[in-house]
Simulated scan of single mutants.
Amino acid sequence: MISPLLGLKGSSNRQQIDDRLQYHPDVYEFYTSINDFTSEGFQALEEAVQYVQSRGTSKIIIHHPMFFKKWHTELVAPERDFPEIYRFIESSTEQLIDLAQKRNIQVLVHGGYAGKEVQKMVNRYPSVEAARQAVYNRLDRFARAGGNHIMFENSIAPVFSYGHPEQEDEILSHNYRLAFDTSHCFIEMHGNNQALQASLKHLQEHVVHYHLVDSLGQAHDSLQLGKGKIDWIHVLKLLNPDATNIYEINLRDQSNCREQVESHHYLVDLVSKLNQGE
Rank of each mutant, 00 (worst) to 15 (best):
R132W: 02
N137D: 15
I85Q: 12
E278S: 12
E248I: 03
P65D: 02
A130V: 09
N35E: 14
I60L: 03
G111M: 01
I230Q: 00
N13Q: 13
I89L: 04
L196C: 00
Q15P: 05
H206D: 12
Q254L: 15
R132S: 01
T244E: 13
N137H: 09
G217N: 03
V49I: 13
H209I: 04
I105K: 11
S54M: 05
H265R: 15
K69N: 14
G7L: 07
L196P: 02
Q101C: 02
N256E: 12
A198H: 11
L212T: 10
G146P: 02
L5A: 10
N35T: 03
L8I: 04
V76E: 08
M189S: 15
S222D: 15
F30Q: 06
L274R: 08
E166Q: 11
Q254A: 13
Y31A: 15
R144F: 11
D253S: 09
Q53M: 04
Q43Y: 04
Q133W: 07
R258Q: 13
Q101D: 07
W71R: 14
P78R: 10
G7C: 10
P4Y: 05
S92N: 06
D140R: 14
Y210R: 11
H64C: 06
F186P: 00
L223N: 03
E40C: 05
F82L: 13
I150F: 01
P165N: 01
D269Y: 08
N13F: 03
A219Y: 08
N193R: 06
S127Y: 00
V27E: 04
L223P: 05
N175R: 13
S173Y: 12
E248W: 02
Y51H: 09
F160M: 06
S33Y: 06
A77C: 09
S155I: 01
S199W: 00
E74V: 03
S263G: 14
K59D: 10
S91K: 15
H209K: 04
G226W: 08
R132T: 14
I89P: 06
H110F: 04
S11A: 13
S91A: 13
I60T: 08
L216W: 09
Y162D: 00
I2Q: 15
F88S: 06
R55A: 06
D214E: 06
F68Q: 09
Q22N: 10
Y136V: 02
S58E: 13
H190Y: 10
H190N: 14
D242W: 11
H211G: 03
P65Y: 01
H110K: 00
L216N: 14
Q43T: 11
K229R: 13
Q16Y: 02
E248F: 04
L45I: 04
G41K: 09
C257W: 07
P25Q: 13
I230M: 01
F180D: 01
H72I: 01
D26E: 14
D231S: 03
I171K: 08
R87D: 14
A157R: 00
D214G: 05
V118R: 00
V76P: 01
K70L: 11
E46Y: 03
